[in-house]
Computed example of a mutant assay.
Amino acid sequence: MLKALSFEDLPNRDKLLSMSGLEAMRAILDAQMPAPPIGDTLNYHLHMVEPGRVTFRGTPRFAHTNPMGTVHGGWYGTLLDSAMACAVMTKVPKGSLYTTLEYKINIARSIPLDTEIEATGVVSHAGRSTGIATGEIRGISDGTLYATGSTTCIIMKIKDE
């Protein structure tokens, strides 16, 4: 039986503030810190972390469909929000945190159920107080473009380092 996750399973704020965003993302990728539980719920996981670039991989299942039987737009949005915002996180300095201010997605076509996809976010700007990134979802097997997105994140200095 799987253990029910709780807030105690996530890194605490002090631990996050003691690391740069890039260090934190690499710790999640290397399973040194737990991944957020949303990935289990929506069947996606962190695949690659580089400065300014993050990739998640996932597969939409029947549980992720809307009443018409197609992949719900929220699945696309959550994956792109994760990829784009985590790309910004790789640029967040030690002592700071970030959160998504706004994001936009454009769905180009429906993802067939059980299709393996890759969601990639790339930073176009990371400053003292804001980060901007773009992203896309593509099929792993053939590179088909399923959606694009953009985000603006706020970067908040919490503690002097």
Results as ranks from 00 to 15, higher is better:
Phe62Tyr: 14
Tyr98Ile: 11
Ala35Ile: 04
Phe7Val: 15
Glu102Val: 12
Ile155Gly: 04
Pro51Asn: 00
Ala147Phe: 05
Tyr98Glu: 11
His125Asp: 05
Gly139Glu: 08
Gly127Lys: 09
Glu161Asn: 12
Ser141Pro: 03
Ala126Ile: 01
Phe56Ile: 09
Pro67Gly: 05
Thr65Asp: 02
Pro11Ser: 13
Trp75Ile: 07
Val88Phe: 04
Thr134Asp: 07
Ala87Asn: 02
Phe56Glu: 01
Thr115Cys: 11
Asp114Arg: 12
Ile28His: 01
Ile107Met: 11
Val71Cys: 03
His47Gly: 08
Pro112His: 08
Ser124Phe: 06
Ala147Glu: 10
Ser110Gln: 14
Val88Ile: 07
Ala24Thr: 09
Thr148Gly: 02
Ile158Lys: 11
Asp160Pro: 00
Thr65His: 09
Arg57Asp: 00
Met1Arg: 05
Tyr146Lys: 03
Ala108Lys: 14
Met25Leu: 10
His47Phe: 12
Met19Ile: 12
Tyr44Phe: 15
Pro37His: 07
Ala147Thr: 10
Ala133Gln: 00
Lys91His: 15
Ser150Asp: 08
Thr152Ser: 10
Ala85His: 02
Gly121Arg: 02
Val71Met: 06
Leu17Arg: 09
Ser141Glu: 14
Lys3Cys: 06
Met1Asn: 01
Thr134Gly: 08
Val54Met: 04
Leu2Met: 13
Val88Ala: 03
Thr144Phe: 04
Glu136Asn: 09
Gly52Ile: 08
Ile137Val: 14
Ala108Glu: 11
Val92Met: 06
Met89Ala: 10
Tyr44Cys: 07
Pro112Tyr: 11
Gly143Pro: 02
Lys3Asn: 10
Leu2Glu: 14
Ser20Cys: 10
Lys15Trp: 14
Met48Glu: 15
Lys157Trp: 12
Glu118Leu: 01
Thr99Cys: 13
Met89Lys: 05
Pro36Leu: 00
Gly149Lys: 02
Thr115His: 04
Asp142His: 00
Thr59Gln: 09
Met68Cys: 05
His125Pro: 03
Val122Cys: 05
Lys157Met: 10
Glu116Phe: 07
Trp75His: 01
Gly127Trp: 03
Ile105Ser: 01
Thr78His: 03
Asp14Phe: 10
Ser18Met: 12
Cys153Ile: 06
Tyr146Asp: 12
Lys91Pro: 04
Gly95Asp: 11
Met156Glu: 14
Pro34Val: 11
Met33Tyr: 10
Lys94Asp: 03
Gly135Leu: 04
Met156Val: 15
Asn106Pro: 05
Gly127Asn: 13
Asp30Ala: 12
Asn43Ala: 14
Gly143Leu: 06
Met19Lys: 15
Gly139Pro: 01
Thr151Leu: 13
Pro37Asn: 11
Ser82Ile: 09
Asp142Val: 06
